[in-house]
Amino acid sequence: MYAIETKGLVKKYKTKTAVKGIDLTVGEGELFALLGVNGAGKTTTIRMLACLSTPSEGEGFVEGHSILTDKTAVKAMIGISPQDTAVAEKLTVRENLAFIADVYGLDKTKAKARVDEMISMFGLGEYENTRAKTLSGGWKRKLSIAMALLPEPRVLFLDEPTLGLDVLARRELWRAIKKLKGKMTIILTTHYMEEAEELSDRIAIMIDGSFAAVGTLAEIERKAGVTGLENAFVAIAEGGRE
């Protein structure tokens, strides 16, 4: 069984088709990057997989559960860190994490253990009693990912996790994401080539709602006939789809 499987997934809006029939399989424990420019359909794809948007056509499965007919089961095993840092601004770091533990119904002992673990994992100890609204962008993003991780999801969706962060904050977040590799399946959207290159096991290049190429970095380079992900991306984008 794949962690993620889609068959002809389509998302149509009134005047635009944002995702045009994608077929995708992601294995357990894989870190899979959806790479593309703004408006390529990356966020729409993970919104459908996270049951935040209903596909217009096609079907998708998360850990074997249908995103159309078994949303409750899907929601119970995923975590998502949206593009904008979705935290409760007037709650402290610890309170934000404890709130998520309560929402997922963790008992008090387990909740405290998980909150402590997340604070330790992301180095949030210094800020645990600081209100979220006063945190810098990088720390907010770490908190957002920690909130997504707290209920121990089997699949984690990270939507543009380092968007708008400075280079140091980005590198620090990369280190945190690398620590998660292999422990769960991670779907990451990004438009930063170096991010996809640095973090992912496999990459899907999304152009205009479709997959133009899917594979490891080496496979994509081979297909494009050039070295480096940026060169490969440009060659594929300019040369048409797979």
């Binding site: 949206p82 904008d84 979705a86 929402v103 957002s144």
Partner: peptide
């Protein structure tokens, strides 16, 4: 207006 509810929509709430 923010993304907070988006996160909450993805929970079992």
């Amino acid at each position: 207006s923010g993304s907070f509810l988006v996160r909450m929509y993805a929970t079992p709430m």
